[in-house]
């Protein structure tokens, strides 16, 4: 998704399609991020003027929420759960393994652009800990070996 070209007209179309909803800003930001993988900072003035908000207000919302990002992610985003139920089943070791295997820390992309790594606080998969999510796919009972299999399978996907 990171390679996807974005243009201001595409963003304008999204904003205009949703701006009449009550409380439209979050749906708009989601739609932009769903399409582009992130919310380009250059789109902030447009969103602000369409919603009659200040740029600071729009930026304030984007920066408040962990999920929204202003830089392109890798082709796949891997979320590692850091919450207590996963900690009870060894997520600390999984977290360390993930960082070492990918060679990056949280909020970074691998140099080949394949992966981003993000922490997440609970995926609701607590009966099958430890958990990760790749894109929108949750994986349970993830051992370091299983993590490597998932990474390889994800890479192999077209």
């Amino acid at each position: 998704m990171s390679e996807k070209e974005w243009n201001i007209e595409g963003v304008r179309e999204i904003v205009q399609g949703l701006k009449d909803k009550p409380g439209a800003l979050l749906p708009i930001l989601h739609a932009i991020q769903d399409n582009l993988g992130y919310v380009p900072p250059e789109s902030v003035p447009l969103i602000a003027s369409e919603l009659n908000l200040s740029r600071a207000e729009v930026h304030g919302v984007i920066s408040f929420y962990h999920y929204f990002r202003e830089t392109p992610p890798g082709r796949n985003t891997i979320y590692v759960c850091r919450a207590e139920a996963c900690q009870a089943m060894g997520s600390d070791a999984l977290e360390a393994h993930a960082k070492q295997r990918l060679g990056i820390d949280y909020h970074e992309n691998t140099s080949d652009g394949q992966f981003s790594l993000e922490p997440v606080y609970c995926l609701g998969n607590c009966a099958c800990s430890p958990s990760i999510m790749v894109g929108k796919d949750v994986h349970g009972r993830v051992s370091p070996e299983r993590f490597d299999e998932i990474i390889e399978a994800t890479k192999a996907k077209p």
């Binding site: 919450a83 207590e84 139920a85 996963c86 606080y121 609970c122 609701g124 998969n125 607590c126 009966a127």
Partner: peptide, 10 residues
């Protein structure tokens, strides 16, 4: 439902 260890809502 953000509480760790909960999944009944889900």
């Amino acid at each position: 439902e953000g509480d760790s260890g909960t999944f009944s809502d889900r």
